[in-house]
Design a protein around this nucleic acid. Sequence first.
DNA 1: AATGAATGAGCGTTCATTCAT
DNA 2: CATGAATGAACGCTCATTCAT
Lengths: 180, 180, 180, 180
Amino acid sequence: MKAAKRLFLEQGVGPTTIEQITSGADVAKGTFYLYFSSKDDVLSALRERFAQDLLAGIKTAVTETPDGDWKGKLAAWAAASVASYLESIRLHDILFYGSPPPTREGLINNIVIDHLAGLLQAGVDAGAWSIDDARFTAVFMFNGLHGVVEFVSTGEKRVNQKRLTRRLEGLCFRAVGETP
Amino acid sequence: MKAAKRLFLEQGVGPTTIEQITSGADVAKGTFYLYFSSKDDVLSALRERFAQDLLAGIKTAVTETPDGDWKGKLAAWAAASVASYLESIRLHDILFYGSPPPTREGLINNIVIDHLAGLLQAGVDAGAWSIDDARFTAVFMFNGLHGVVEFVSTGEKRVNQKRLTRRLEGLCFRAVGETP
Amino acid sequence: MKAAKRLFLEQGVGPTTIEQITSGADVAKGTFYLYFSSKDDVLSALRERFAQDLLAGIKTAVTETPDGDWKGKLAAWAAASVASYLESIRLHDILFYGSPPPTREGLINNIVIDHLAGLLQAGVDAGAWSIDDARFTAVFMFNGLHGVVEFVSTGEKRVNQKRLTRRLEGLCFRAVGETP
Amino acid sequence: MKAAKRLFLEQGVGPTTIEQITSGADVAKGTFYLYFSSKDDVLSALRERFAQDLLAGIKTAVTETPDGDWKGKLAAWAAASVASYLESIRLHDILFYGSPPPTREGLINNIVIDHLAGLLQAGVDAGAWSIDDARFTAVFMFNGLHGVVEFVSTGEKRVNQKRLTRRLEGLCFRAVGETP
DNA sequence: AATGAATGAGCGTTCATTCAT
DNA sequence: CATGAATGAACGCTCATTCAT
């Protein structure tokens, strides 16, 4: 999986051959098929692992913020997301926007968005902010943030993470009707 | 190009062969190479055309809104975007998220986002709203909207376009610091 | 060998893998190579066993017919052959007509034909019938009978064994110049 | 097809690779798939051609014998069959006894046996001889003859075709109840 | 004696691309 | 301009065989 990840990042999924993966991992070609049934299968495994890691990081950050501080939790969510994505936006895109997109179910998006939707709804229930539809807003926020990180990553020379985070926190606040 | 578009939608880009395209277009295989240099080349052409059409629709809607009515223009932008994407979100995804990703330059995103950023900045200059960085907000808004449309398209049975548009307008207003 | 036989019958020799055989026999793959050197080796063993069983059945039937009754012995040969083949014609064909053909030596044919040729020659010596060349006639008779059984097995819904046997006895009689 | 036939004869069907066939025919590997869909497909084509040629030879010989001379026609059938098979018994065996045997329908056997059965029945109708069941006897005769030719081909140093033919005619006569 | 993970040569098949007609 | 037969590199995948445990 390490070899596959490296190669996918270097040349994309399509052009990477099984042979290259096994060469990179210093095993024989047949060995690959002992553990994976196809290239898509490795992709699945990488997705799974990526999603778990990402969600874990976000959850930790949000949980560490004191209960009751809803704006703080939302800011923590944004900051953790930005940090994670800055580190691995290319891997994310390769895994989740690769040619035959998976069932759209089981996308990383889903578990991360589920979690965010939960957070937003909890804020609503606690009277912290007011929004029409938590899931809806979660999708908007997630995609907006993701897009911005991607935009920034491919555009600027060096990313000013601090300013980026501050601005995204501001946009998240506005999305729930708060002022930055 | 018509045949290619249909096939890409039906089975994805990768699995579509040149032979299928030429069969579908009722020409010989060699003829393909008189007009395109490769499959990626057709993809490029389809992208170009798609982006032009999309931007044209948005521009018209925005222009038709009376000058000075900034919220109206933003709402028009959102409504036109939703309408266009609802009709062709799958084609968009196939064209712009297929592997191997294009140069990140020349993405449809760019010309549409450029336009939106212009609109936002104009609003700022006119004192209609206040935002930190127009381009930044434009990227956020564009991706948020796109994500929501995609989410809605793959999820619900039938899409309630009116409600969807209303909610997205609201989120766009909030993103520029206005109340829905 | 039991597992191999079952699999050969179910899917043919070629498509059967060593892995399937060892799975079917509930042993590890390596164990196979402790007892056989290759798939052809199992095939050989199955052939040997098949030929022994078949010849034993025929010999018994022929021996049980009183000495001197040559037509009776020939009829017994035919009846026993029909009975045996009806039960296992598919196995026979798989074992003896599979590619690559064995050395043509060691074919079941040989030991069964040898025996039949002996019987025919004994009849000649005893003045029971008159034929040109015993071995020659034995080959003809053996193959004719085998072909008929195969023909009948693959063709009809249900085989009328009694009638089949009677007719084949008749043909065997004719082949040695006797009337049925 | 010529190259395939040669290779099948030299090394058997299984061990022959598509690559060898195309090399032998001095074309590229892909060209093979322009005309055949698989190795089995070539096999089919060779079978077809073989059966046509064989049957044509037999029919000619039988037809050339004066009508009314039933024993002559049967002798002609035997002689033509022997001659054809002696020339190409190995090819026949490779084509028709290869591993995954075709549907047992469409076997050469069928069209040749059909023809022979017709001849035998015509003889019965004309009162030339008496047999129980024409098709049945045809199968017996065909397989007997085929087996003998095969036996002789693989056994002796040099085949005495004249004596072989005479003896097989004799056996065919006996099978219809005539004396040689 | 038994195991089963590892091997890697070799297979059938596909398909973008060329070019003589 | 258009054709489509021919190409052949490249791929995913299988499976008989080995051998350290």
